[in-house]
Amino acid sequence: MPHISIKAETLFHAGLLSVTNSFITNILVALLLIVVAVMYYGGQKTVTGILDLALRGLYGLFAMVFGDSINKYFPVVATFFIYILIANWFGLLPGVGSIGFRHEESIVPFLRGGTADLSTTLGLSVLAIGLVQFYGIRELGFRAYMSKFINLRGPMDFVLGLLEIISELSRALSLAFRLFGNIIAGEVLLVIVAFLIPYFVSLPFLVFEIFVGLIQAVVFTMLVSIFISVATTKHSA
């Protein structure tokens, strides 16, 4: 059986920070996106054309959720989308997860898909849920927004408020586990298929994983944008 690691492996320590292989991949993805952004604003013809087309499609997708307030929230949700999409696809590149050094009978890869690490996805989801609270407070005001959670009008309302707090926490957890689980399941699937039949058979699975990466990026950002649009609308109660 091939060795499968659920958590990212530590490559070296830099002071107190232990640098893992998925951390390095995340840095690479961020650098790549920065380079593309610089090219876009530099007016590079091909990059501008492709990105304009892609962003227009994305804008239409999120306009369905946000309606008129799309311009306020499009930058942040589009950032989430692009980052998760590129991180998902980066993990499928040849060499990522396969080139590494030998350590106690198993291979520790130098690079590991950024979203195939629970720390990354948990960080993203906690950031997203934190932003939902921030936007809710900004749009409705602190007292009005907090009355959703702490409600002293009656015992039943108080219990419902506690349930709201728990549901907000579980949203962060479920976002993180959904993304992490799908990506790690894809990697395990690819490893097992390549282990069973070494040639050609893993190609359709690779195409399927490209599709899954896109779908999971859409699902994550769609859920975050639905949470934002629910948190920022006034409810009469």
Partner: peptide
């Protein structure tokens, strides 16, 4: 496809736990 992705996520949770 969106709804299928949500339903599939439940199976993925079980898969993560089993892994």
């Amino acid at each position: 496809i969106l709804a299928i992705a949500f339903a599939e996520a439940v199976a993925i949770y079980a898969l993560v736990v089993s892994l």
